[in-house]
Amino acid sequence: MRKLKRQLCAGPYIVWIIGFTVLPILMILYYAFTTPEHRFTLENVLSIAEPIHLKALLLSVRLALECTVLCLLLSYPLAMILNGLKIKRQSFIVFIFVLPMWMNFMLRILAWQMLLSNNGIINSILQALGFSGVSILNTPAAVVFGMVYDFLPFMILPIYNSLVRIRSDVIEAAKDLGASNMIVFFRIIVPLTMSGVISGVIMVFVPALTSFVISDLLGGGKVLLIGNVIEQSFMQGMNWNLGSGLSIVLMVFVIASMAFMNSHTKETEGTAVW
């Protein structure tokens, strides 16, 4: 009886996994490797090499890299400052960063649309101060803005967590042995936070690479990322096969990144974001 109970408890989970993860992936795989006439083909997956798709993929990689680098440059100092403040309740810090994520993602991106538009708040302030306006909206720059805004917490939290774990006596030992602040930073702090940094980089790069909503809303339809190509294949081109093929290629990218991350983080230091 107990065994049955336990199995039933696992039931919903199994249903969820099969129904919403395994089956859809199988379906995508099926569409990816067949033509509309249900014949086997590799052309959908290989179409990533077509100039347009390649261009979109490279643009996606470029923007994702820019976003990741920006996030890193912003997050690391911020995390260090937070750590230096030695606030007692770290859960409070986590809460502050997670809080914006409770608000609808679309609303926040739309807010950025308003902020960045030609008559938006940022331009109004600039013009009131006597500067000429900046035309950022509907350019790749705006898309990077939106990505950085959206993904910043995913970079800050792992770095902050790994910073907090560094014991203060290790820092003192380094100084005791003659290390200046510079040396302490580069030889002690940076290596010890590396797993957090890698965690953060993956958690930013992967969603940035595959995003299409941000480029839709902030790119004014002018920025074509690989995510947009896939979306278009399904919604406008009605070519599910092509869309699936390209999705498979992206999935491979994502899996490769995660494998890379796993090989570089130590088992004991599993930096959980939450």
């Binding site: 014991r167 006596d169 030992a173 380094a174 100084k175 005791d176 003659g178 010890l192």
Partner: peptide, 20 residues
């Protein structure tokens, strides 16, 4: 003087070795 400029060295209670 900051610690890195003093000619003293310390052995800490919890060793404080550099694990990396």
């Amino acid at each position: 003087l900051p610690p890195n400029e003093r000619k003293v060295n310390t052995v800490f209670q919890k060793y404080a070795l550099f694990t990396h």
